[in-house]
Design a protein around this nucleic acid. Structure first.
Lengths: 121, 121, 121, 121
DNA sequence: GTGGTCTAGACCACG
DNA sequence: GTGGTCTAGACCACG
């Protein structure tokens, strides 16, 4: 899986890494149990500080997306916690996006089509 | 309309104000042409600096949501530009949220119900 | 001649009045010697303070575009001073606009066409 | 590149900075990808507050002229959006300048020569 | 070291 | 009274 960093984004680099790995797991590009590159490998590959990658991995671990051990490095967790809830921050973000979409003249049907495409099948 | 600031949020205060006003316009709580509180009134009401409120208003102005004049203060714009697009940042955010929702075990139907509730009718 | 005020413009109202009268003289809509509406008439017509119109007239007078006397009110000057220079402020503004036009991908030919249309004949 | 502030100008300092950087990019004095001075360096160089410089940079960023990141500071964007339009404010300003130029006795040919010089080649 | 945020307080032009 | 500008100074996350 290829991680692409936008160094000029407002989103911190460690968060960009975290987000792309989460999206990779969700899309199936990263399978359950699959091994992630080592911190050192990934940081040299994308040309950033190891601390930054390490921070991304720590967040993914604390969120329950990956497991780490000294021997095997990091792996995608096979049983990700199914909270079945969006969480308050994502709910707030989603409300904001929905509001802006409505004001920009997008119809609910169009918005649902966007969601459908993103969801895959 | 009541603005509530979460001082522990990662979202800057001026952005929280901006977001809540956008959501207020979208929901109809703030009507087209309606007058917003003055910078001074709002800043004293929520206990923050006038510069911070001013920054929120300037962003809303530059985004085309409100208009300001020296005499009457700020008003909700009656004709908000209908770009009919989400914008690249909102698209990225939405992709991330969809990915996290899927991984948390939310079904597409449940997600669409969340959208439906947020959308209103 | 009809003066249209944009109350939400960053350009002060007195300057909007001044600018529109200058453009009216330049286009020929206002002829040399033609009488302008009284301060009172114009201010009530466009619904603003008499002081604001008065300020516009004072600027036009000091710039040599109009003449005022108690008996006849304000008239377009028949011999406007032909300095044949842009002035430093207009020169700076024009430089800025040219720079922005270039960066936006407008060609010199296209820009000259815009000038031609504005110039009339 | 040297930024010169006119403290007596009606143009706010942050806008003077913004304008001079835009003109620098347009003239080629600032090249695509070139690094701008840091907020602190520029503010101390021209003797003004960091907030004022920061505001100029934020405007340039929101307009798409520059990119900022925490590590490297600000850089001139390599691909500036080519809208190919003047924008309504610049169009209005240009109309005003053309009108004043005509009234001052400048011929269309002379005006086009001024444009030509500003445009470079 | 970098840009970003926020404050307290001042002053300004406009109307 | 209104929004807009600017300062001096502080603190912050990111890298």
């Amino acid at each position: 899986m290829i991680i692409k960093i936008n160094e000029y984004s407002d989103v911190p680099i460690y968060m960009q890494i975290r987000n792309q790995i989460v999206m990779g797991i969700s899309s199936g590009e990263l399978e359950a149990g699959e091994q992630l590159p080592t911190v050192r490998a990934l940081s040299s590959e994308i040309g950033i500080n190891t601390m930054t990658v390490s921070k991304a991995y720590q967040i993914l671990k604390s969120e329950g997306y990956i497991l780490t051990d000294r021997k095997n490095g990091a792996r995608v967790r096979t049983e990700i916690n199914q909270s079945k809830t969006l969480g308050s921050q994502n709910t707030e973000e989603l409300k904001r996006i929905v509001s802006e979409a409505r004001l920009s003249g997008i119809s609910k049907e169009e918005f649902e089509n966007i969601i459908n495409e993103m969801w895959g099948n």
